[in-house]
Design a protein around this nucleic acid. Structure first.
Lengths: 217, 217
DNA sequence: TAGATTGTTAATCGATTAACAATC
DNA sequence: TAGATTGTTAATCGATTAACAATC
């Protein structure tokens, strides 16, 4: 089979690709040029057979007896994920969480750029976070359209989550990352990803009481 | 079978419990007293059969023909997760991300309390985040021991991640949440949970190019 | 060639879902 | 009693892993 004969790729595969990419980029920085699935498995904690199987969903990128050329594999994964070109995204909520996201180092490397930040707190509007000036919520639709933004991050207080989500979706955003604990609804055709830090914390508590050894979660 | 005949609980189950809890608490706040697996499934996006099956791992908490008493179920899940009592935790890194975590509203409700914050930036040491005074890294071991802290959150720059992790583990921390993109190693008996915001962003990019409809991730 | 490691098939494992008898 | 919904078993589905022939 040859590349991009993409059938139905399991969620799990897509979730692991960024982990591979992360390690591969590190290796490349260290000057390593080739890696075997065994070694990559060691570094990511993923079974080598699974790594090979994951990759075959998209083609065959390795050399038998040799391994994978890191440069090639990085490019391929970036292409699969779409991180081989720039993505602008909008951040709603300029609080601590929003600032943390906007200031995150690793973004650039993956072509991810916050190019618009919105807040409804007049003390924040006009301030800068990095290079970006915080705009009023009133400008959300216009700015998103002008910049043709497809990705939105919701980092607002819970009570505003659904409203903000609705506005982002209506303004043409296709992927929404929800950093609030609220279960928000999105229209058909919009991909929603929820990250609730508290829920993550909670679930790890379980391993505190029952100490069934190491659980790398 | 009766409660806590706990065999081997699948990861997935433990990950879904906080989601159930979240909704159940909301329902309770709204004054609802009973919920069926069907309704809970609607609200969480989880298959009702799965909810019932998940719960039977821990006992049988419902009434046939009626559903689940929300108060009872909340208590049971809190007990399973261990969020029925207070957990102190330590936060290393008092930047934006750290501040966001420490300031998170929903924590209290689940008995989660940041009681120690550390940073090595002298401009931050002595400052307050909420009620907590930021301490020097030098005090980490002593404070952790004094407070008997079991959970640590790593929200420092990548280059410090492994060192901080090592120190937390050595100081008796049993659960470590790593908010850096670095793959850190933990000793036997320590549970590690990684959350890399950038990796999450990356994996959602995939759904931007291929628009295979709605993927609630 | 001998050794290594992929790509891929087949076997295993586990998790999800459907179905339904038990029972409130 | 009739209706609803659980708890649980059995069927399905999919993902993980092992194994190995292909081949660098």
């Amino acid at each position: 089979m040859y590349a991009s004969a993409v059938d139905r790729i399991p969620e799990g595969v897509i979730e692991r690709l960024p982990a591979y990419l992360n390690i591969l980029i590190q290796l490349r920085t260290d000057g390593v040029s080739t890696v075997s699935s065994a070694r990559l498995g060691e570094l990511t904690g993923v079974n080598p057979a699974q790594i090979r199987r994951d990759l075959t969903h998209f083609g065959s990128f390795g050399k038998r007896g040799v391994g994978y050329d890191i440069g090639v594999l990085v490019e391929r994964i970036q292409h699969i994920l779409g991180s081989d070109h720039v993505h602008r995204f909008a951040l709603v909520g300029a609080g601590n969480l929003g600032s943390a996201i906007a200031g995150y180092g690793g973004l650039r490397q993956h072509g991810l750029m916050v190019t618009a930040i919105f807040d409804n707190d007049s003390r924040k509007i006009g301030a800068r976070i990095g290079d970006i000036v915080v705009q009023s919520m009133d400008e959300l639709e216009a700015t998103l359209q002008k910049q043709n933004i497809r990705i939105g991050i919701v980092a607002v207080p819970p009570e505003a989550a659904q409203t903000v989500t609705d506005r982002l979706a209506a303004a043409g955003v296709r992927v929404i990352l929800n950093y609030t604990p609220v279960i928000v609804r999105v229209p058909e055709g919009v991909t929603l990803h929820n990250t609730d830090p508290v829920q993550e914390l909670l679930h790890t508590l379980y391993y505190l009481s029952r100490r069934e050894g190491v659980a790398h979660v």
